[in-house]
């Protein structure tokens, strides 16, 4: 084990180390945790990050999901085409020179279960990983906390490359950034969102002028 905690890779607890760290594969198997967020479409109108909260009060993303904690022994059923957010059981902490990819296990893939659509995990990350799980199969699937559901592949990073890009060392090194709540509060950053709103406003104004001179017909 790496003595320096800043440089240590943590994927723990490994409940069955010999099974999860098989010598024949280049990855670590991770298990399904106990935290779930289940989508309930009835709670929302439409997911539009630029929508005005006044006119579309249901745009609040967390309202889309119900929280569920399922202890070991319990289970969750995912119906065809349902999306579920879940945590890994393992706590992950990546040092500054490592990143990881999350890939679903093929045995689940063959049942139609897709795991992790946002698969990159950045250096200095800490916390459980959020898994986006979707059942693309034809039959409902029952999932149980503790099942090995995905794999982590690691890549070492060259900090010099980042330095070349920015021209200076990254100040984040040595400070760890937490995993986010599984349900995002927003899709884009504040800056991007604000820029996109400005574009939309300009376009709406232009449309309005064209409508005034009759070049755009009002919808019936």
């Amino acid at each position: 084990m790496e003595k320096d905690p800043a440089k240590r890779l943590v994927v723990a607890p490994l409940l069955e180390p010999t099974e999860q760290l098989s010598g024949t594969q280049a990855s670590i198997d991770v298990r399904l945790g106990c935290e779930f967020r289940l989508a309930s479409a009835a709670n929302i109108n439409v997911l539009d990050e630029l929508a005005d909260a006044q006119t579309n009060p249901f745009v609040d993303l967390p309202r889309l999901y119900n929280n569920l904690y399922v202890p070991l022994g319990g289970g969750v059923t995912i119906h065809p085409h349902q999306l579920v957010l879940a945590h890994t059981l393992e706590y992950i902490r990546l040092p500054q020179d490592l990143m990881a990819y999350v890939v679903g296990r093929s045995s689940f893939g063959r049942l139609g279960l897709i795991v992790a659509t946002a698969i990159g995990v950045h250096p200095n990350f800490y916390g459980p990983l959020t898994l986006e799980i979707r059942n693309l199969g034809e039959a409902p699937l029952r999932l149980y906390p503790g099942q090995t559901i995905a794999q982590l592949f690691f890549h070492t990073l060259d900090p010099i490359a980042e330095q070349r890009l920015w021209g200076e060392p990254d100040v984040r090194f040595g400070t760890f950034a937490p995993s986010n709540e599984p349900v995002p509060n927003r899709v884009s950053s504040k800056r991007t969102s604000s820029r996109l709103r400005a574009f939309r406003k300009r376009r709406d104004e232009a449309d309005s002028q064209l409508r005034a001179v009759g070049q755009i017909k009002e919808a019936p």
Partner: peptide, 17 residues
């Protein structure tokens, strides 16, 4: 020391098994 680097104390350290 580990906790200060965001590794919470949920298990003893040492050999994984």
């Amino acid at each position: 020391e580990s906790f200060l680097f965001a590794i919470p104390p949920f298990e003893t350290d040492g050999d994984l098994r």
